[in-house]
């Protein structure tokens, strides 16, 4: 298992405070693109503000952010462009309100996707997390709102969680800047490949669907041998997603995976 559970990490590199520079809106010549994804109202914009020093509007209701925002930070001499996205419940839908976020997660080619979740509502948040893990193998789970989880007496074992999801898990309370240094460190390690993720794949699918997905992804892999997320493409084709079908038809697809 290559994944190091962050919370109990004794040996891994420590946060280098001197190496951090918040760059605000300056996103010129970046080395990595980091997407902030997650359900609505989980604190994505708050995390974004903590990392970039910007003041993206936050508010305690789902749907506060509706357009995507960009900002940057520099850590250990590498520049990161951070993209704050509107909240989404799912990548499987085609609803218009979630289009901006869905498209960026699927086609924006972020180096690392940081999935911000509400620690006290982990189960429902995992719906999106598991979907994202189907399409990317560079992700970090930011277990935000830990203070609220504590207030609700909820205990989370980040070590087993990281093991089951196959990605690093960082507990945080973004509003109080807790866990942000660890988050930056983890992001940089995933971006540089010193942490290699082995994302969870959805298991509890009925046999006939599993088989259909298998068959289709074999065909897709024949055509595009390097496709990292053939299973996801298969899911979308089975769903009849016109967007994906068009991409396949027009061939723009190749661009998207290369």
């Amino acid at each position: 298992m290559e994944v190091k559970p962050k919370s109990a990490c004794d040996t891994c590199a420590h946060f280098n405070a001197a190496g951090l520079k918040k760059l605000g809106v300056d996103t010129s010549s970046f080395d990595h693109v980091i997407a902030l994804a997650g359900n609505p109202n989980t604190g994505k914009s708050t995390v974004f503000n903590a990392l970039t020093g910007l003041r993206q509007h936050t508010g305690n209701w789902p749907g506060k952010t509706v357009t995507r925002a960009e900002g940057g930070f520099e850590y250990n001499n590498e520049k990161y462009k951070l993209v704050d996205l509107p909240g989404t419940y799912s990548l499987l839908s085609t609803s218009e309100d979630e289009e901006v976020a869905r498209n960026f997660i699927l086609f924006g080619k972020p180096t690392v996707t940081v999935i911000v979740v509400d620690a006290s509502r982990l189960e429902r948040n995992l719906n999106l997390v598991l979907q994202i893990l189907e399409i990317t193998d560079r992700a970090v789970l930011c277990l935000n709102l830990m203070d609220e989880a504590k207030r609700n007496d909820i205990e989370i074992n980040t070590r087993t969680l990281a093991r089951d999801l196959g990605i690093p898990v960082v507990p945080a309370s973004a509003r109080y800047n807790e866990g942000i240094p660890e988050l930056i460190q983890t992001i940089s390690e995933v971006a540089n490949g010193s942490i290699v993720c082995k994302p969870h794949r959805i298991k509890n699918i009925p046999k006939n669907i599993e088989k259909a997905v298998e068959d289709l992804s074999v065909e897709i892999l024949k055509e595009y041998p390097d496709m990292p997320n053939s299973r996801w493409i298969a899911f979308r084709l089975l769903e009849g997603d016109q967007h994906i079908i068009n991409l396949l038809r027009t061939g723009e697809f190749e661009e998207y995976i290369s």
Binding site: Y89, S90, L92, S93, T94, N127
Partner: peptide, 11 residues
Amino acid sequence: GESRRRLLDLG
């Protein structure tokens, strides 16, 4: 359609 998916996604 859409509303069914949304309900499922909401849990």
